[in-house]
Design a binder for these strands. Structure first.
Length: 244
DNA sequence: AAGCAGGCCAACCGCTGCGCT
DNA sequence: TAGCGCAGCGGTTGGCCTGCT
């Protein structure tokens, strides 16, 4: 039996529907005090009239401090495409390769942009969406630049293209070799290349040959590719086998 | 200006796997 | 080993927003 309480719905004692700012605050306070997990205790300990599932979902998809806001970048999009081709609808697995992005976010993005029209990213709708996305990104970029200008924030160029890379040869050294030659410059954690940063941090000890799991191996296999268009790392599956 | 269609995203639902008893 | 509870996952829904006609 459901009861409408104006903003939200009460069902069997649990509130449903959109979260209020006060509920968010209570949930954040709870996680600060008790950490993530034991979500069924939230109602009792935090005074929230939400079930554990709802609390977990709200935290994971919206309140987590490490979430990355804003549109999916073309770089992230290419990663999503490649990983979806590998793993299918394993959204949580794909999300683990995109720091700050949630499985829900990626799932929504995929369904919006690629699910329809026979999974053709280049369809008319996808093109329109991309055009809209680019307009938004340009706007966001302008805003970021304005903010950086206001704060005098000088961001360093984050080149990770190896100086020894021979374009004619098209043969890339291994990651370990680059580490030895100190030819990799770590991007900052705040950079959109957070993926590269986390991969370097996670596997720097030995590169793909030291990867801890099959999934790590897959990531190494797929992700370490370089593109010199903008003096930064880009995701290009076609070159993967040359690099690792 | 209004109506409509589609995009976008937050949230819910049902199922599954895992750990504990 | 069966039963139970919890956490996590993928699918789906519903409402708001935006752009087009």
């Amino acid at each position: 039996m459901a009861e409408n309480i104006g903003w939200g719905l009460m069902e069997e004692g649990w509130r449903k529907g959109p979260w209020t700012a006060e509920e968010d605050r209570l949930l954040v306070e709870y996680v600060k005090l008790h950490g993530e997990g034991r979500w069924n205790n939230v109602a009792r300990l935090a005074g929230l009239k939400r079930n554990g599932k709802s609390c977990r979902l709200r935290w994971v998809n919206y309140l987590r401090p490490d979430l990355k806001r804003g549109q999916i970048t073309p770089h992230e999009e290419s990663i999503i495409l490649e990983l979806h081709a590998r793993w299918g609808n394993r959204w949580s697995t794909i999300a683990r390769s995109l720091p700050g992005r949630t499985d829900n976010e990626i799932k929504n993005y995929w369904r919006t942009h690629f699910k329809k029209k026979g999974n053709k990213p280049s369809s008319h709708n996808a093109e329109k969406s991309r055009a809209r996305l680019l307009r938004r990104q340009q706007f966001q970029l302008q805003q970021q630049q304005q903010q950086q200008h206001q704060h005098g924030d000088q961001t360093d160029t984050k080149t990770i293209l190896p100086s020894s890379f021979d374009e004619n040869d098209n043969k890339l050294p291994t990651f370990t070799q680059l580490m030895m030659r100190q030819e990799i410059v770590f991007p900052s954690a705040a950079d959109e290349q957070g993926l590269l940063y986390s991969m370097i941090k996670g596997c720097a000890a030995g590169g793909p040959e030291q990867a801890a799991s099959n999934e790590d191996m897959l990531m190494w296999d797929g992700l370490w590719n370089l593109d010199d268009l903008q003096n930064r790392a880009y995701y290009q599956p076609a070159l993967a086998s040359n690099f690792c």
